[in-house]
Structures are given as structure tokens and as C-alpha cells.
Simulated scan of single mutants.
Amino acid sequence: MNRYAAFLRGIMPSNPNMKNDRLRGVFEGLGFEGVGSVLSSGNIVFRSPETDVPALESRIQEALNRELGIGGGTLIRGYGELKALVDADPFEGLEHCRETYLTVTFLKHDAPPEDGLAEIDPTVRVIGYDEGVRAVLWVVDNSQPTPDFMTWLDKKYGKDITTRTFLTVQRVLKKLES
């Protein structure tokens, strides 16, 4: 049985259709096992014998749209991909805190950024691109006004992306291991 994490885009916990119990219900209704949620921002873990990740993403997104009216996006990563990312410790020596966010932006498709990515905003430092998990890894300086990096990412990669803190990714991995 394969272990997966679904990172759902555009989840707002204040919307009754986007609450964890409703999200888990869609996954359980699709026949997945071991369904659980991590925090309240659209992180769902589950087990499935299926191995076609793009088909899983489409199937889940169609069900979320049909049953809850959620049109965001679904990006799935397998346990091994997330474990490799966390074990690589891409933010070595850096601390996630109020002033500094360690952040992972998952891309639907493999599209490494160009060299000029680091010049987008002075409050953003790109650590790199992790090919294994298809994600841009970056650090944002929150002591400055919020950067427009998220808008830039949307323009560059489209809406088939979603961003989580590295702490959230670590929590998701821990839930997959339990």
C-alpha cells in the first residue's frame, strides 16, 4: 500500500466546505485508507494501492469540486519523495521563526527555475530546486513587508502549485510515518 500526501491549494478553514472533516470525507468516499489531516490548510495523508499519481490528482480534484465545490488544485507527493526532502535538510543551519519562514513550493510539473530566480525580491532567498519532489525551496524575510513572490510564482508556473512551510512538510511526513 502506497503512502501519499495531498497538498490542496486554496483551502480556507473558515469555509465550512473546506474543514478537515469534510476534506477527509471526500478521500474516504474515494476508498482511500488511513486518511488523516495535518493542520487546517489542506494537507491530507492517505494510503492507496494506486501508483498513477497524475490520475490520483485528477480523481481527487474532480471529487473535491463535485462534492464540496473546491476548484483549487491537488498536488500529491509520495512518502519516499517527502522523506528524501526532509532527510536532505535543504535549510541546514536556518531556523523557521516569526522573522524567517522556510518555505516549499510544490510544482505540478517538473520545471526548474532559471538562474534569475534569486533576483525576484530582496526579501526572498531561493535555496534551490529539489527535482525529486519538484519544489522550489526558499526563505522569506518576514521582518520586511510581505514580498510579492507568491504572485510571481503563480505567473511563472500557473495555478498548479501550492506552498507550505518546511515545518508543515515535516509534520505531514511524521503523520505519514504513524
Rank of each mutant, 00 (worst) to 15 (best):
F32L: 02
E177Q: 11
R24W: 13
E119M: 12
Y4H: 13
R125N: 10
L23T: 08
F91K: 06
R9L: 15
I70E: 05
E33W: 08
H96K: 07
Q170C: 09
I44S: 06
L153C: 04
I11F: 03
A118V: 14
G25N: 01
K19N: 02
K174I: 01
K19Y: 01
P122I: 06
V38E: 08
C97K: 14
S40R: 12
T105M: 09
T163D: 02
L176W: 03
G72Q: 04
L82G: 00
D141N: 02
G34N: 13
V139P: 00
T105D: 01
E92K: 15
Y4M: 10
P122M: 05
N20T: 11
K156C: 11
E81Q: 13
G71W: 10
G116I: 11
T165Q: 02
D21Y: 13
T100D: 11
S143H: 02
G34K: 10
W138H: 08
T168L: 08
V86E: 00
L82A: 00
Y157V: 01
L167Y: 03
I120K: 13
V136T: 08
L39G: 14
K108C: 04
H96A: 04
E114S: 15
E50S: 12
K156R: 14
M150D: 09
S37D: 10
P122Q: 04
S178R: 15
R77Q: 05
E28I: 08
L176G: 05
F32Y: 09
S58V: 12
D148R: 12
D87T: 10
K174W: 09
S48G: 06
S14V: 13
K175F: 06
D87P: 06
N2F: 07
R171M: 15
K175S: 06
L85P: 07
G71C: 11
E62K: 14
L137G: 01
N15I: 12
F91D: 07
V53L: 02
E119I: 02
A118K: 09
R3Q: 08
P90A: 10
L68C: 10
E57R: 03
S58K: 13
P90E: 00
G31E: 07
T51N: 15
Q61I: 05
E131R: 15
L30N: 01
D141L: 01
F27E: 04
P112I: 07
G29K: 02
G80H: 09
R171C: 12
A63F: 09
E81I: 04
V38S: 01
M12Y: 14
N15E: 10
S178E: 15
F7L: 03
E99K: 11
L64P: 02
N43Q: 04
Q170L: 05
V53Q: 03
S14C: 11
D87R: 13
T163R: 10
G80E: 13
M12W: 13
D21P: 06
Q144N: 07
E50L: 15
G73T: 14
T163F: 14
P13K: 15
L176C: 03
Q170S: 04
S40T: 07
N20H: 09
G10M: 00
Q144D: 09
G34F: 12
T123S: 15
R98P: 11
N142V: 08
G10C: 03
L75C: 00
V172A: 04
R164L: 06
L82Y: 05
I44Q: 00
L167F: 06
I44A: 03
R164P: 00
F46P: 00
E95R: 15
A5R: 08
L107Y: 12
K108A: 06
N43T: 06
G132N: 02
Y79G: 01
T74L: 05
R134V: 11
